[in-house]
Amino acid sequence: MTTLSTDQFHGHEIQTHAGPGHTSRMYCTIAFAKREFFDALSSRWFLLYTVAFSVLSIGVSYMSLAGSGSQGFAGFGRTTAGLLNLIMLVVPLMALIAGAGSIAGERERGTLLYLLAQPITRTELLIGKYIGLGIAICCSMGIGFGLSAAVLAFNAGGVGLGSFSMLIVFTCMLALAMLSLGMLLSVLSRRSGIATGLGLFSWLTLVFLSDLGLMAGTVLFKLRVQEVFAIAIINPLQAFKMGVIVNMNASLDVLGPVGSYASRTFGDSLSWILALTLVGWIVFPLGLALILFCKRGGI
C-alpha cells in the first residue's frame, strides 16, 4: 500500500496510509531470539544456574586432577566422566524449567496477547523464543565448560580434549532436547506454575523414575537385551550418557550386558544413533509444541 497523504501530529509527520510495516519471517524470529537471549542474560535463574554449574564444573575438574595425582594424565577424560553425572542432573532441570516458563509465563502475564496482536506469526514467536533460550542455556553451560577446560589445560595439558569437546556437543543437544520438552509443556499449560510443576515431574521421571521403571520392567517382563537397549535410549538422558561414554573411547561394557550388546551390534554407528535419538528429542516435542500452539489458536 502506498502513502496517500500526510498530516501533522504534535509537529510530527503522520502518514495516513503507511506501508504494511510487516517484516520477514526470519527477521521477526531473530528479533524474538535476541530479546529472549538478553532477557535470559539479565535474569536471576540464568545467573544462578551459570554460577552453580561453573562452580561444580571447576570442583569436578580439580577433584579429577587430584585423583590422577595432579599429573594430568587423561585429565579431560576423567573430568568428562566426572561431569557426566553432574550434567545429567543440572542441565535437564535448567532447560526444562526455562522452557516451561516461556509461553505459559507470557500467557499468565498477559503479554502473549499483546505479542500476538503484532504483525508476527505464532511460529516466529515460538521458534524465536526457542532459539534465544537455547543459545542462552548453551552459553551458560559454555561458561562452566570453559572455566573447567581452562583449569584442566593449565594443570594437565590437552589430553582427552576430543572427548571433552564431544561432551560439550552432547550436552548442548541434551539441553536443546529438554528445552523442547519444556516448551511443549509450556504450550499445554495455562499457568506457568503448572508448566513448571510438569517440568519438575518430567525431570524427576527422566532422571530417577525411568531407570527404576526400566529395572522393574526388565525383571517383571523378562525383557531381552535388545528390548532393554531400545527402551533405555528412548530416555534422552540415557542416550546422552551412552553417547558421551562411547565418545570417550570407553567400552560400554561398564553399562553391563546392554552396553556390550550395543557396542557389539552397532559398532561405530552407535554414536550416531545416540546423537540422532537426541535430535529426535529436539525435533518432535518442538514440532508438537508448534503444531499445538498454531492450531489451537487463542491465548
Binding site: M1, P20, G21, H22, G110, L113, Y114, A117, Q118, P119, I120, T121
Partner: peptide
C-alpha cells in the same frame, strides 16, 4: 500477519 501489520493495537 499482513492484516495486523495495518493495525496499531492498544489493549
Amino acid at each position: 500477519k499482513l492484516a495486523r501489520a495495518l493495525v496499531g493495537y492498544v489493549p
